[in-house]
């Protein structure tokens, strides 16, 4: 594996506001890094600096061995970038825009044809190729933005909210595309959609108020959740009360949360006391009690929960309990 993008001590201040505060991380070939954080956390600002648009107040960015500040052209040549909101020249057609990008990037003829075919094919742009971009739907605009980012087969791909405005099918297509390209590139995507992290990312960084608060594999992040290894049970309303008391008797169970579902079934969640696997104990206890359980499953952990914990500063657990109480 080789490191394609290195960011070291990156800081950006706008007057008195520190948007990005001493961020350090690197991305290797083959990694898909999910960049998470609430709005205004500094995700876009970091990406703008990595692509050489904004100049940092302090810190270094190296793309494929080239310092972005000292050799901006060399660095930019190796980056594919989808800016936030996918801004494009509305008067151009996808065809003319992609050709413009190929010209600027000096692609040799066969590489150009390959790049164009691949980009147009994988983002399904055939139908709109000769329509002015300003007349296209939001989803198409986003896909044209993606196409111009991948047309030159860059080593480093930086995508600011690539699936914003796409319908579920298009999202799935983009996820597949990213998955196919992942092995040969270093990819960074920023997103609000936490399922996307599960779907495509091999690693996730959560930033809050300009600082990195977590940098782990998605599974490790999930393990931080209090839902990690919790056991979910669906049971008919009549048996719910008894089931709760049965579960509470198990020593490895920390607490039990009960949610009434619209279907009439009750969902119970038994939280693990030490984060360990408790499904064995729970199953034994349920079997012994003779309760008729509809469904039983292990929770992997909820990213949303972890996200809130990390970005709000205060544990989200209290809030969850409150919700449970209301239910």
């Amino acid at each position: 594996m080789s490191t394609l993008l290195e960011i070291e001590g990156l800081t950006k201040r706008f007057g008195p506001i520190t948007a990005v505060d001493d961020i350090t991380f690197s991305v290797e070939r083959g990694e898909v890094l999910g960049f998470l954080g609430p709005n205004g956390a500094g995700k876009s600002t970091t990406m703008k600096m990595a692509t050489g648009y904004l100049s940092p107040t302090a810190g270094n960015i190296t793309v494929c061995g080239y310092d972005v500040r000292l050799h901006p052209i060399e660095a930019k040549r190796r980056i594919g970038y989808l800016p936030e909101g996918a801004p494009l020249y509305g008067d151009m057609t996808p065809n003319s825009l992609l050709n413009f990008v190929c010209d600027i990037r000096k692609l040799p003829r066969d590489q150009r044809r390959q790049g164009l075919d691949h980009a147009i094919e994988s983002l399904h742009l055939h139908q709109v190729l000769h329509q002015p971009i300003e007349t296209l739907s939001k989803g198409y605009k986003r896909r044209v933005g993606l196409a111009q980012a991948i047309v030159h087969d860059p080593d480093v791909l930086i995508l600011d909210e690539p699936t914003d405005g796409l319908d579920p099918n298009q999202k799935h297509e983009v996820h597949k595309l990213l998955g196919r390209m992942a092995s040969t590139k270093a990819i960074i995507i920023s997103t609000h959609i936490l399922e996307e992290v599960d779907a495509v990312c091999s690693r996730a960084i959560i930033i809050s108020q300009g600082r990195i608060v977590a940098d782990e594999k998605p599974s490790q992040l999930e393990a931080r959740s209090r839902f990690h290894n919790a056991v979910g049970i669906r049971i008919a309303a009549e048996g719910a009360e008894r089931c709760v008391s049965v579960l509470n008797e198990i020593s490895e169970v920390h607490s039990v949360q009960q949610v009434v579902q619209p279907s009439g079934l009750n969902e119970l969640v038994a939280f693990s006391a030490n984060g360990g696997n408790i499904i064995g104990q729970v199953r034994t206890a349920i079997d012994r009690s003779g309760l008729d359980v509809v469904e039983m499953f292990i929770e992997r952990g909820r990213l949303e929960d972890v996200f809130r914990d990390l970005t709000l500063g205060a544990p989200a657990a209290a809030e969850v309990k409150e919700e449970a109480g209301n239910a």
């Binding site: 648009y53 800016p83 909101g85 990037r105």
Partner: peptide
């Protein structure tokens, strides 16, 4: 205004 400056200036040009 349209934000295309970010697109243009992140292409490999001075």
């Amino acid at each position: 205004k349209s934000g295309t400056m970010e697109f243009l200036m992140t292409l490999p040009i001075s």
